[in-house]
Design a binder for these strands. Sequence first.
DNA 1: TAAATAACTGTAATCGATTACATAAATATA
DNA 2: TATATTTATGTAATCGATTACAGTTATTTA
Lengths: 342, 342
Amino acid sequence: MSKKTTIYDIAKKLNITAATVSRALNGNPKISESTRQLVNETAKEMNYEQNKLAQALKSGKSYNVGVIVPRIDSNFFALVIRGIEEVLYAKGYHVIICQTHDQKKLEIQNINSLLNAQVDGVLMSISNSGSEENENFDRLLKKNVPLIFFDRKKDIDGISAVTIDDFKAGYEAAQHLINQGCKRIAHLSNNRKIQIFNNRYLGYKQAILDNGLEFDESLVIETASKVEEGSKATKILLDMEMPPDAIFSSSDFAALGAIQEIKSRGIRIPQDICIVGFANEPFTRFMELPVTSVDQSPLEMGRISAQVFLDEVDKGKKKIPNKQVVLNPELIIRKSSLKSEA
Amino acid sequence: MSKKTTIYDIAKKLNITAATVSRALNGNPKISESTRQLVNETAKEMNYEQNKLAQALKSGKSYNVGVIVPRIDSNFFALVIRGIEEVLYAKGYHVIICQTHDQKKLEIQNINSLLNAQVDGVLMSISNSGSEENENFDRLLKKNVPLIFFDRKKDIDGISAVTIDDFKAGYEAAQHLINQGCKRIAHLSNNRKIQIFNNRYLGYKQAILDNGLEFDESLVIETASKVEEGSKATKILLDMEMPPDAIFSSSDFAALGAIQEIKSRGIRIPQDICIVGFANEPFTRFMELPVTSVDQSPLEMGRISAQVFLDEVDKGKKKIPNKQVVLNPELIIRKSSLKSEA
DNA sequence: TAAATAACTGTAATCGATTACATAAATATA
DNA sequence: TATATTTATGTAATCGATTACAGTTATTTA
């Protein structure tokens, strides 16, 4: 109701200046213990709360950080965000979450919006659909707003990134399928202009070649990370003259679509076709037929991304070499690919 | 790099005052057309961008709005948020999303955090675990920060709310099961101190009574909205002397747990037991056995909540009667409850 | 032509917190 | 005792945008 109390109100009441009050509240060592106590008590009495907007104006820091992800209703991104929040909240930051829904237009809009909100930094996983252009990222960098990529990254000078070793993840997934006796392993990829998807693909390919199997490019299909798209792609695969005996999908959602399509044709999993997904979404564990998937330690990814941001903020203008953190993926083996036990 | 340009820079360049620049940029009618143009052009040339922090300090508005939900990795909340964003972004607001994970402690922390960020309003779905106390909400109200509940609400004077008609939803779900010939319908409820859960329960109960069936309180179990909890509760139900022939769950996640438990015992769905969930999460559609569920038009709920907030902000201090918007639920019937066709 | 009005623009205070610099009082040093 | 050094606080500018009020022309009216 009544106006908020400011340091001026406190100052007037104690017959001192706002400067002294400010210093006392901020623990400036030049303030005598007696007045410090007095000020603190009075502040409490008067329900003083610092006006963050004023402080922000003065310091040029908003203590807001933007996080941009393709979508928030995936467990993976939700957990990354949780990790980010955990670290940043503790440092007094607020997190503004934006979704791109994999549309470049929205990505640009989001960046504008965050810039507008004068965020102190941006942590993001880039959108799928996208030109080769980096102007948006450049705009952030030019303004000295730290930008950190996680998961879906691009190699841009001056931008740190936190990912898992996607090549290794792809390699291990394929190797696992090969170990199960699969010979024709298909791959539901995603936009391979995005590094992580390309790396998963490359790892998968390498494993096939390393094992002396034939690599068939026609078994690789790019799809969006959606159930329907997974089904669609699987239709194509199953209709081939020599259909695959395994599918490694770089998305759990697409894998789910694949499973639906396969089951609808009465083909057995894992006996006839083995399935491996990616991201370890909870439903992979909860399904009647639990799905093998790759865990990306999203919580950890979020925490580390936040830490990288904090480091960059601290270092201020000093240009530091962009940090590239690579986490270890973990293949979680479940029934959908356990031919040996079926 | 170089400092940001301010209205003072523009003023200096044009040999006028910052006041004039400010007025020109804001379309003040007292400014001559010529200078207005000149200012606008120069602003563009110099890459001028308004400092929102300064404006926020002056106006007392941060143009930040807080949204508090139990979790973001559920399709329901993700869509509500999307609806909110849609409306608020268009009005120049930013949205700060917070999760409570159904912990009162985090809820309080979130509110503090948002208050700290000087948000212009808070839209929230209250957390489950909770005392009867409303002090946190009162704190917002005392500061004249509009608070709007959606979905999980409480009746508090001065707080508007947007929900679906949960009583009707519960009633229709139960009626549907009765129509399928079910006689002993169990209910996986949730904390019934939360209105929406109590209303679903009451609707369910009323339908049973209206149809002359016996109402058995022991068939009602409170569980959290989690897969594991759903399984656990279902174990109890199936171990009863007279197990139910249908389960109406007020959560899709708990329903999923129920289905797992039921299937693991070799009991058939829907022949032996029918299942109805709640929230129309995507997986209900994608499962091998698609699950009947209640749609709550989350997008619409978000949009309307945002609109209610905008209305309250506009009206300013004038106390307006708290608005209570009630949306219509829609029962989406799928195989899990279609005994008649099985 | 003098007075009144309109049309612009400038002056300066304001939002609330921070901080370099100045100053006063208290204490230490020679 | 006179000077140097601390210690504690006050003064005033600053961050950038907004706006009530005042002031200056230019235009209109009597």
